[in-house]
Design a protein around this nucleic acid. Structure first.
Lengths: 250, 250
DNA sequence: TTACCAACCTAACATAGGTTATGAATTACC
DNA sequence: GGTAATTCATAACCTATGTTAGGTTGGTAA
């Protein structure tokens, strides 16, 4: 069983348009398979990310450990699935990964993937963008799953705050946010009434001052501590391999 | 303000490695900006997907309308963000998108993006894979946000069922699933006890028969109806532009 | 000014799901 | 084979959040 049988190849092959050259290229990427035991860890959150894997046998999953001791599973991987492509575009793993039962995985290095992209650094950039958006989505998934309403809202506001700061739209810890509580409720999956209640709570604790579309976070760091915010998914630099590639391009 | 100021460019520019040629290429992609009013819809779910947009002014958001009349917001987009890249790799929109307040957006066609990828159909394949994974994640997000436990579990099981069917691992509506209820609870964000309760419920309704790692769905379609399953995100063919590109490659 | 409407707040009540606990069934390990 | 450790089922109780409802505020238009 080779990469030909994986998800990518299935996608490409259904169109009957994969050249022999491409197939050879892909097979060239294939490193030696690894035999994994049940529960064996593929990688841990925040380790260096330099490869992805095709799951050949067995089931695996990716997950994040939460501060309260529990964990949120992001995805289960079945035979033929690719695991680890999510971190392509980041220097470090955003989530841990482990086997469920015993199986076989086949690793591929990101470096080789970069080379596939050839001279177009733009392609890599687009991929990085898509990847980042996915990372933000994962972050939200985690908060929806396991946190209380006030933690969700705090996380949400702090994320908006960081994203606005990047584009210089924050002045004196205040910013413009054209969202109604109803919109926020649709985003966080809670009722509008509870959004209001939760804002009141945060206000009483002096964490958020809100007047219609004007929001002030008197102590952003306190908010961040409340939610144990991990901002690497918002603002990370490109990994070294990216910049190497970019500098090499004419 | 041009694409240079967007997320992609920020990422690439921080490394100081974007060639004049690349910049010119990007600027060439830029179509004429569109002035949008508040609440104006960019596109609706399941429309043809053929472009993405850079939000230049104003806020926007992507969302899915749910069967119960409410909606789940997937993401808010601030000035400088790219909206619609999520659907790259699909023929149709997976979510709707609309403005929040008035603003300006700048559309780019997918077709041009494909051409950027140049001759490497593999690059496009990798992107498509990453995109699909993101789509599955979004689907989960929606279920975490707005649905009751039995709907979440039904959706989860039906998704596993479909993914296993693709790789021929389903026999007589039965399949092997090496997950404990605890793992499932970590994935769905509910307590293990409630997973058990919910399995009991589904069993009593004759929808799911489960014996340890052996699962049978006597009537998969009934399950699918229960959750109004949209399987386009699992099993979609590549869009026409992809196959054109692939056939054109030597 | 007046009327109207959307956004928001707060309260009272209902309920889905969390928590804790106990026992039964399976599986893993000596 | 026997013992321990998982996994699962079910029950009793509790709490966070949903629901319904009524009132306040602020903006907008006639």
């Amino acid at each position: 069983m080779s990469l030909i049988d994986t998800e990518v190849m299935r996608g490409l092959s259904t169109q009957g348009a994969l050249s022999q050259e491409d197939k050879a290229l892909l097979l060239g990427l294939e490193l030696s398979p690894r035999y994994m035991s049940a529960s064996e860890v593929l990688w841990q959150e925040s380790e260096d990310a330099d490869l992805f894997c095709v799951v050949k046998e067995g089931w695996a999953y990716s997950y994040r450990n939460l501060k309260n001791g529990s964990k949120q599973i992001l995805k289960f991987y079945l035979p033929g699935d690719i695991i680890g492509i999510r971190d392509f575009g980041f220097t470090r793993r955003l989530a841990s990964a482990a086997m469920i039962n015993k199986g076989v995985i086949c690793p591929f290095s990101y470096q080789q993937l970069f080379e596939l992209f050839g001279r177009s650094s733009l392609a890599a950039g687009i991929v990085a963008t898509a990847t980042r958006q996915q990372a933000q989505l994962s972050e939200r998934l985690i908060y929806l799953g396991k946190y209380a309403a006030h933690e969700q809202l705090a996380h949400f506001l702090y994320e908006i705050y960081l994203r606005l700061k990047r584009i210089n739209a924050v002045r004196d810890n205040s910013f413009f946010m054209p969202l109604t509580q109803e919109l926020i409720s649709d985003a966080l999956g809670m009722s509008p009434v509870h959004v209001s209640r939760t804002f009141s709570m945060l206000r009483e604790e002096g964490l958020v001052i809100r007047n219609r579309q004007h929001v002030k976070l008197p102590d952003p760091e306190a908010l961040a501590r409340l939610v144990e915010f991990n901002d690497s998914y918002i603002d990370e630099f490109l990994p070294p391999s990216f910049s190497e590639l970019l500098k090499a391009s004419p």
